[in-house]
Amino acid sequence: MSQVQLRGIRKEFGKTVALDDFNLTIPEGTLVTLLGPSGCGKTTALRIIAGLIKADRGHTLFDSTEMTDTSASARDIGMVFQAYSLFPNMTAKENIEFGLRVRKESAASIRKKSAEILEITGLGQHEDKYPHQLSGGQQQRVALARAIVIRPKVLLLDEPLSALDAQVRDQLRDEIRRVQREFGITTLFVTHDQEEAMSISDQVGVMNKGSLLQLGTPQSVYSRPINPTVARFIGTTNEIPIKIASGKAQLLDSNYEISSASAYSPNSVNRIALVRPEEIKLSKINNEMGNAHISTISFLGPTSIIEVTMSQGLVIKATMSSKEAATFAINESINLSITSSSLLISD
């Protein structure tokens, strides 16, 4: 297992800059996810680590070994692709053994390792099946087994779950995490699915327009986004117009501290506070008009989303337990407040 580093990577495709001065460190044995919208450069970064794309500038290092000019076949990586990538002319077992055969391992070693991985991934009963006889989920499990059986220095997962239905996706996601921990493989996972990134990763890197905006634990990226772009991309965010006076954000007759990660022009008049739905608190009022009324209540099982319409017509979402949400009714007049101590402000 290795620590992986990308240093000062730049990659252009024609006039499009896919990555610009891109730096990333994946600590040994951890699972790091690159998360971002389509076209943000996350797959390009993964393919540069794999050696399937050559960077225009910058370095790729496995531990302290320079890998920039090493071909993909010599990098000792395992990779699972978004598209089904099993070799159609080989059975599941033959697919799994392909990398071991290429490495010219002994027959006994190949038998032992493939039997072991088939057992770990629960694919024993499917070993003699061809790819077209396997479901999408089973094919991706075989692809994962094929990538892991060679004990790669780095495991690269390029949106491996995106073609699967929800239930299979959840199962395979858990399986990837379990196997990754069991083998302790340094892993880079690329996805545009926030939930997937949050649930599986040791660290999440949020990307946009070829740059890594923030890298941190899922909790820190969610609760302490480094700037409004990250806040908008991760989770749901209410965008509430505010005024700033005496260095404080004025909202709903209260003053709030301004988060240091805020990014706004001091000259602009109109600013936006980015507030998570779970930071919105609704309170019942007696015999007096509140500052908002409830327009919809959406039941999501353990939690519910309540949409509140402010007197100015602004709609704000609040998340709470379904038990608490059951105490409110549509069209009910309520008071709305914000529980956070400091607000993230944007232009």
Binding site: A50, A83, F98, G99
Partner: peptide, 26 residues
């Protein structure tokens, strides 16, 4: 899907000749 099959083979350590002979031709 020649691109994916080629990339998958390369990532598993196969050189161009091996990819042609053992993956693409069959």
């Amino acid at each position: 899907d020649i691109r994916t099959l080629y990339d998958a083979s390369r990532s598993l350590g196969a050189n161009f000749v091996t990819v042609i002979l053992r993956v693409l031709i069959p």
